[in-house]
Design a protein around this nucleic acid. Structure first.
Lengths: 181, 181
DNA sequence: CGGGCCATGTAATTTGTTACATGATTCC
DNA sequence: GGAATCATGTAACAAATTACATGGCCCG
């Protein structure tokens, strides 16, 4: 139901087309809830059928503008009051649990590649954070999320560097006798 | 394919039953890749049919012990060398993007409930980190992951407190004229 | 007039969730 | 004897991914 509710949330701000919503997902929600147009268009049709949104205009190239209805607004608000599911999947971090299967140098190489990813993400978030803040309600909420992104990536980089040191130390235990079982 | 490969990864350490694998998922992989028995049992059957694992024993109560085959080991190793998908879904954090739809006090209440969750997770991780480390390869890899969990939860708590301050300040802009547009 | 972007959809397949279903063993 | 835990499965449904499919508009 998350896709459904995030669409409603984005439409609560202003009417938009499926295409605009698709781009918004890619720009802002990508890191918490990725969704592609092939999922968005059918869901918009369902939302309209359920009376939670309604097509208010159409333009050239078959463009369809949707607006949220009062029922739709009630629905998002109710969703926001529900207890979120805290489970997450992290395909990249999953590999860390299996790092022990690799040779130390391969494990380090993996972490180095991950480091590049996180550095890129961090730069992306920091660049966005530099942009002037329009002090609208939506903007500050997005800012809160952006700030979390920056913190997350920084922490990930610190952890990454630390993890590599741990692996290197295990490989060549400095000073002490090899303590492996 | 992540479920498939994490099963192989766990079986690379030692032979196990579907039931044991289910518990291992709940104990250690829950935070990166949740999976239930209803997904695990059919996947084990497929892995066996594909020759990546093989049933090596059976016990009372219909117990089936599976062991990884050389082909299965090749498969995990190959997976570990592939570039991971960095997309993640976070149903709880998704709501932060829509915090602006709520009244400030509701947004703060939401963050306070989240704080409790993260405090609980942090305590859980810290308790696990207290446990004696057996210096096996698998153990240290799990340690690396556990350490990330602790860092993540601490950072989340800091962000959470900061976010609440931002919301409070927006509600009652101290000293300065209300700057909302 | 061609490439890029705007714009919307469907279909097939894979993954994942929830509920249903059953039964053995162990411990109190 | 009854509750908890061990132990394995299937079925129905929902969600998500990947590929297929089409066409208009605008700019150079």
């Amino acid at each position: 139901m998350s896709l459904r509710h995030s669409l409603l949330g984005l439409l609560a701000e202003q009417p938009r087309t499926g295409y605009e919503l698709t781009r918004l997902f890619d720009e802002s929600l990508l890191n918490v809830w990725p969704a592609s147009h092939s999922q968005i268009y059918p869901e918009l049709a369902k939302l309209a059928a359920d009376g939670l949104i309604r097509q208010t205009a159409s333009g050239s190239r078959g463009k369809k503008v949707y607006a949220i209805t009062p029922e739709g607004l009630d629905e998002v608000m109710a969703w926001l009051r529900t207890e979120p599911d805290h489970s997450t999947k992290n395909p990249s971090f999953l590999r860390v649990f299996f790092l022990w299967l690799m040779e130390p140098e391969d494990a380090v190489a993996f972490l180095e590649r991950e480091e590049l990813e996180h550095e890129a993400k961090l730069r992306e978030f920091e660049a966005k954070a530099e942009l002037p803040v329009r002090d609208t309600s939506r903007e500050w909420a997005f800012r809160l999320a952006l700030d979390w992104g920056v913190r997350y990536e920084r922490e990930m980089l610190e952890w990454n560097a630390w993890a590599r040191r741990v692996i290197e130390e295990r490989r060549t235990p400095a000073g002490s006798a090899r303590a492996r079982r």
